[in-house]
Design a protein around this nucleic acid. Structure first.
Lengths: 154, 154
DNA sequence: GAGAATTCCGACCAGCCTGGTCGGGGAGCG
DNA sequence: CGCTCCCCGACCAGGCTGGTCGGAATTCTC
């Protein structure tokens, strides 16, 4: 059981966007975001697409366009981000990959299903309890991640 | 994030073995187990191999050989079974699939890592709290799963 | 209006993992 | 000694992950 890069990158992108403000500020272009975070540009674009479709991010088209967070960081949970990038948080294989019709049908007495249901609840509860605001605290401030022009010794 | 058949089958197999006694009773052959549970025989054999190496199951070689549970059902948790069949319960991608050296190295300030660590703990705690005994309760009794000789109308 | 910047979106692709299968070796019972 | 059954590594097809590509649509700037 593991987390894919879809979710991992989605979080990085969301945090990045959260560090900029929202709405008022000029939106961030996908390419620029990818460059700063050192992630594959085309891939970032795909991910932003999913985030937008899930309503986590909003976009401005055309030149000078880009993306910004659709809601307050405190209103976006890890669960939201993960559900947007992957299709769900925890996939119940009873539904998605049933091994046997009469074993996995909702009516049959399967001793294992309650375990996965319980696990799913724990996972969703936990991921749903952490918002982007919490993550922002542990991030190095924006001054440590120079955008483009900094008086470095280059 | 999902559970693979390795774990799912491992659980089915473990429950099956738990329903028979241990030690005293004659061991169950892999082929027979597979037939009763309607699982691919060769695959079941592979899984039993992993379970044995993890010390969850013991084997008797030669004719009339087979497998039985190595410990009391109450001493075997879902976490044990899952760790045996997959290599772990929840794979921390910071370690297994780091996306970036200075982002994911244990020293660097990564805001995301604590989330995965927290998630891992929840998962392990929960899976470690459920034993085979709990699962046995919800199973149909052995009389509903005839072994080989039943007065059927065949 | 031309051109540039940028989002939108589906199609494509290589490599890895999952879910098995196969074939042959021992080991022990009868 | 022959049959049953565990042991074990190798193999393999299909699907998913992690990206890439190419082009259309939209908007800003000049």
């Amino acid at each position: 059981m593991r987390i894919t890069t879809w979710t991992e990158y989605s979080l990085i992108i969301s945090i990045h966007l959260a560090k900029r403000g929202r709405r008022g500020v000029s939106p961030v272009a996908a390419r620029e975001l990818a460059e700063v975070e050192r992630l594959p540009a085309d891939y970032v674009e795909q991910i932003l697409l999913r985030l937008r479709r899930a309503g986590i991010v909003e976009s401005v088209r055309g030149a000078k366009g880009g993306y910004f967070l659709a809601r307050e960081p405190g209103q976006i949970t890890i669960r939201d981000v993960m559900a947007a990038s992957e299709h769900q948080t925890f996939e119940m294989n009873c539904d998605a990959h049933p091994i046997d019709a009469d074993r996995c049908s909702p009516g049959s007495a399967c001793a294992i299903r309650p375990v996965w249901q319980g696990l799913q609840r724990r996972i969703d509860d936990f991921l749903g309890s952490v918002t982007l605001t919490e993550l922002l605290r542990d991030e190095p401030g924006p001054e440590l991640v120079p955008l483009s022009s900094s008086p470095a010794s280059s």
